[in-house]
């Protein structure tokens, strides 16, 4: 990994599929926010899977890895923001608030997918490494407190909000935070196994329009390529994509779902 983006990802390729609805460039602009701070739990995997799934559909992809001393571009199609440790999370929130790029991108309707610490940052506030309330970006109507009990660690299985039309989510969670959902968001999924938002009501993650948050890593796209496809469809504003092979993803999903108990 090198920052900024690897040159091989910086050459826009000719778009071969999909109509350029919101896409004024010839390729999908995939922005990975702050890998120097928020890339602890294989978060690079989500960027790699989105990129791979897009290229398999003949789409060009420009991946932009934005380090935390660089401005977040406002013209991306898909933004990914990952998980991290407590101090980097606070630094990331501070820098994103000062930069303003991600918020402007969201106002322009960008697609944002966030995991764990990144999910908490998109909310209204969270508890930082100093034990203080840290303002988030307010892109999701959620707020995060610190859990009293043991850390939530382990495999997760969850049913996605039917409106999103996605198969069961499988992943791994590792967090202390408890995320409370406000009126302005819907839960992304409800857990069968695992703790999800940690509130005890069985909810996992949250979303509003094209902004998503989840506690699942794994990373989540590797175990749930349908999530990557959903983001690509949203970016292209299409309801279907040409098929792309999912043999190994399917095998992994079947194994993990079988390994994770499925209480009703």
């Amino acid at each position: 990994m090198s920052y900024p983006a690897d040159p091989q990802f910086q050459q826009p390729q000719q778009q071969q599929y999909g109509r350029p609805s919101r896409m004024n460039e010839s390729s999908l602009r995939l922005v990975w926010v702050y890998p120097d701070l928020l890339s602890t739990y294989g978060d690079r995997g989500n960027a790699l899977v989105v990129e791979r799934r897009a290229r398999q559909r003949g789409l060009g992809v420009t991946r932009i890895d934005v380090r935390s001393d660089q401005a977040v571009p406002t013209s991306g199609d898909i933004y990914l923001i990952g998980g991290g440790e407590d101090r980097p999370q606070r630094l990331a929130a501070e820098r994103l608030r000062n930069d303003g790029g991600l918020v402007r991108a969201a106002e322009n309707g960008a697609i944002i997918f966030s995991v764990c610490a990144g999910y908490q940052i998109l909310g209204r506030e969270f508890i930082n490494d100093l034990g203080e309330r840290e303002p988030g970006l307010g892109l999701l109507d959620v707020w995060t407190t610190r859990g009293e009990g043991a850390r939530c660690v382990g495999d997760v299985l969850a049913d996605v909000d039917p409106q999103l039309g996605l198969p069961q989510l499988t992943g791994f969670e590792n967090h202390q935070g408890v995320t409370h959902l406000g009126e302005g968001v819907k839960p992304l999924a409800s857990v069968r196994t695992g703790r999800g938002n940690g509130t005890g009501d069985g909810t996992e993650g949250a979303y509003r329009e094209t902004v998503f948050g989840t506690y699942l890593h794994g990373p989540v796209m590797a175990r749930n390529p349908a999530v990557a496809d959903m983001l690509i469809k949203l970016a292209l504003d299409v309801s279907a994509l040409p098929p792309a092979d999912t043999t190994w993803y399917d095998a992994l999903r079947a194994e993990r779902i079988a390994a994770t108990s499925q209480p009703a």
Partner: peptide
């Protein structure tokens, strides 16, 4: 028990 590191 977490395999996410494979992606790093």
């Amino acid at each position: 028990t977490d395999t996410s590191w494979l992606w790093d």
